[in-house]
Structures are given as C-alpha cells and as structure tokens.
Design a protein around this nucleic acid. Structure first.
Lengths: 226, 226
DNA sequence: ATATAAATAACTACCAGTCATTTATATTGC
DNA sequence: GCAATATAAATGACTGGTAGTTATTTATAT
C-alpha cells in the first residue's frame, strides 16, 4: 500500500521552525483548555495539529518541555496583564483582587503553575529548567517593581509580597481543580465545606492578612532563616 | 507449560479481606515513599504485594481510590500527631512550626494532599468522595478544637486558622516537590531563588501573619463573601 | 461433593518516546 | 536556467510501558 500523497510543507529556516513550533503550542493550548492536564495526550495533539507524533519531538524534547513552554508564555502574558491592571495606588484588598482576577482570566496559567514542580519540572533538561527559573526571576522583579509603587512598600517588601502571593495563589485555587460535580447531589455538609473553600475570598482575605503583616514588619528583619 | 503451584491463601471473611486490603495499603505506602506519585504503577505494586494486578481491583475500584485511602489514613495519622504535639498555650510561631514539622515528618501526607484535587479526586466514585470529605470535616473540627485552646481563639477563628493553614501548607511545600538537583551545578541566581522559597520559613512566616491577622479581626465579620 | 467467590492470567486500548526510512527543499555543478 | 545531489523535516512503524477488564481456575466454606 502506497502512502497517500499529502504534500506536507516543511519548515527549513529558523523563522519557519519557530513559527511551526508556535503553531503547535497554540494548538496545544486550545486542546489543553478543553481537556486539562491529565487527559492531554501527544497522540491527540498531533492529530489536532495535523502532524504525526514523531514530528512533535522535533520541536520539544518531552511532553513536559512543551508544557513548560506553555507555562512560560502564560506567565509572561499574565504578568503583563496584571502589571497593566494596577493603578498607582490601591488598597491591599484591591491589589489581591486584581491579582486573582487577572490570574484566573488566563485559563492556562494557574493549572500549569500548580503542576510545575510536581510533574512538569521532572522530565525536562536541566538547562531548560534554569532558563525557565531565570524567566521567573525576571517576572517577579517586574511585578515587584510595580507592586512597590502601588502598595507603597520597600522593594524588599514588595518582592516578599509577590513571592508569597504565588504561594497563596497555588494553595487557594486548589479547590477549583477538583472534579466538577459541585452543585449536584452533594449532601449539605459537603457542599458547605466546598463553599467555605471558594478560592477567591480565600485568596483575597489571606493576601490582605499577609500584605498587612509584611507592611507591619521592620524592614531590616526580612528573610530570617530558621 | 503448567502454572507453577503457588498455594495462595484466600481472604474469605470480612476481617480477612480488610486485613489483606490493609496489607496492600502498607505495601503501597512503602512503595510510594520510594518512588513517588508519578512513578507509582499498579503492576509494580502487585509484584511487591505478591499478588496479580487483577487482584488489586478486588480491593480498590481504581488506582486513585487506593491513593485516596492512603491519603485518608495519613490525614488521620498526622492529625492525631499534631494534636498530641500541641501544648495548652503557645505562640502562633511555635504553633506553625509544630504544624509544619509534624506534617513533613509523615512522608505520605503532604505529597498526597497536594495531589488530591488535581488527580486523585478525579477517577473516584462520588460516594467515596463524599465519605472522604466528611472525614476531612471531622479532622478539621478536631484540630480546630485543640487550636482554639492552644492559641486562645474563638472556635470560628480557630476553624478559619486550620483551613487556612492547609492552604498555606500546600502552597509553601510546593517547592519541595521539584526535581532533586538543588546544590549541583546550578548557577547562583537560580539556587538563590530556590533557597528563597525554602518551605519551612515560607510556611512559618506566613502562618504567623495569617494567624495574627485573624486574631485581629472582629469576630463577627467572619466568612464574608465577595 | 458441591457452591461460592477470591485469585489469576490473558487481554484491550491506550500512552510517551525512538528511529530507520521517505521525501520536500536548498544547494551545487554544469 | 536547469538538473543532480545533499540536507534534514516529516513520517509511520515500532518498543516497552500503563490502567483497567474478564473468562477461567481453584481454595475454601457449606
């Protein structure tokens, strides 16, 4: 049986390859938004992107490296959106709300952030990982600079706030990642429990507590180790 | 080729079946502690437990139900240990340290807690999930009761503290779940970043900020929704 | 001796990742 | 300007694994 002719165009130049890689990433992201992390398969992605699975490995070393790239792009996207959303002065509560809202508006960012250390960072080459961490450092710095002005904090305090907000965001949005059976036939005690872990108020309340806590601490005592 | 005789004893009574189930769980836990969640396979567990894979499905509906059971047992174990560790009066910092230390001392609890909503709760029957949530409610109540006395908080404030500590624990211990390449050939900026996310000080500092924040809030304004 | 159901082993349908082969396209020689 | 050759992008068949299913075997209670 002869192969059906399928006239596939090839990416030869660096630009063409970058463009194809990005096209795969775009297909991957829309597929990810549909099915989530655990159901995501490279075989399915290949079908969607109209290439064969082996081709994907010309552009990404592993499935996890593909996700790491998606994470990086979503981080940059969110970071830019969050910074743009911040006025020059606001309350810590409004700050927390904007952080939460912009982060959740990007359907990719939080689910990948949550899975970064557990799964994505395993099975990625160390150099790739270092590059990713450096991107992260840069984004934290950019957000911290804007935060320092917006919340009237020292630059050290602002960095502490930004890092801690990431930690809190991961913890608070965990409940959103459960199976989507919320208002069905759940008994009252269980649905009350779930409601008490609603991620937005959980995040905002504790973000305010932490920001005000940091604001109240003497600026020199930062970063004490145990 | 005839099957090699292997004289397998069978669990007939409910007691025998419960005992065998627990033996499988014990094997699963020691295997899990060795290889972690992602590398855990039922085929390997079966070999270790000296049964065939199909047998595991007589005792657990899915792999995730097995992990849910392990999680429940580790939750109860930790909850008991934490409560036992708490003196009648202590500072919020000491409280946070004890919570962190007892949680980390149990190698199973935190890694499974982190993966509960993302992976474990998917692929588990809804009734089983409800039972698990109720167990969780009970444990939160028990810890909150002791917390109320230990930190001199109202019962509502103590419940708020306990729930929030869980959220923070998940966020703060995330960095411990990354690949174990910390002090190798990492560049200084990256290893400094990783160090700045060391989970214990991250948890304790923010736990104190949150507990003191809750302590300072008017007791009636609890649980405002957005 | 018979009935029951625990345990088995072979099976399905998937998965990530690899690699020899095919072939589109850029480069080189005329 | 055109054809031959070299390059490497894309392919598809492959490996060795996974979770979960089920007809069959067989230990044990009745």
């Amino acid at each position: 049986m002869k192969t059906v002719a399928n006239f596939r165009q090839r990416a030869r130049s660096a630009e063409q390859k970058a463009a194809r890689r990005q096209r795969v990433l775009d297909d991957a992201e829309s597929y990810f938004l549909e099915v989530g992390y655990e159901a995501f398969s490279l075989t399915q992605l290949a079908k969607r992107a109209d290439v064969v699975k082996g081709t994907l490995y010309l552009y990404f070393q592993t499935k996890e490296e593909l996700f790491l790239t998606l994470y990086e792009q979503s981080l940059e996207r969110w970071s830019e959106a969050f910074i743009a959303s911040l006025p020059n002065q606001l309350t810590s509560e409004r700050y927390a709300e904007l952080l939460y809202t912009t982060a959740m508006a990007d359907g990719t960012f939080v689910p990948l952030l949550i899975r970064l250390e557990h799964v994505i960072e395993h099975n990625v080459a160390i150099d790739r990982l270092i590059a990713s961490k450096r991107l992260f450092i840069g984004q934290v710095e950019a957000i911290a600079a804007k935060t320092s002005a917006a919340l009237t904090l020292s630059s050290e305090q602002a960095t502490e706030v930004v890092k801690t907000m990431g930690v809190l965001l991961i913890g608070a949005t965990r409940s959103d990642q459960g199976p989507a059976l919320d208002q069905e036939d759940l008994p009252l005690d269980v649905s009350a429990l779930i409601e008490s872990f609603a991620s937005k108020p959980l995040f905002v309340k504790n973000a305010v507590r932490i920001i005000e806590g940091i604001r109240g601490e003497p600026a020199n005592a930062q970063q004490s180790r145990t």
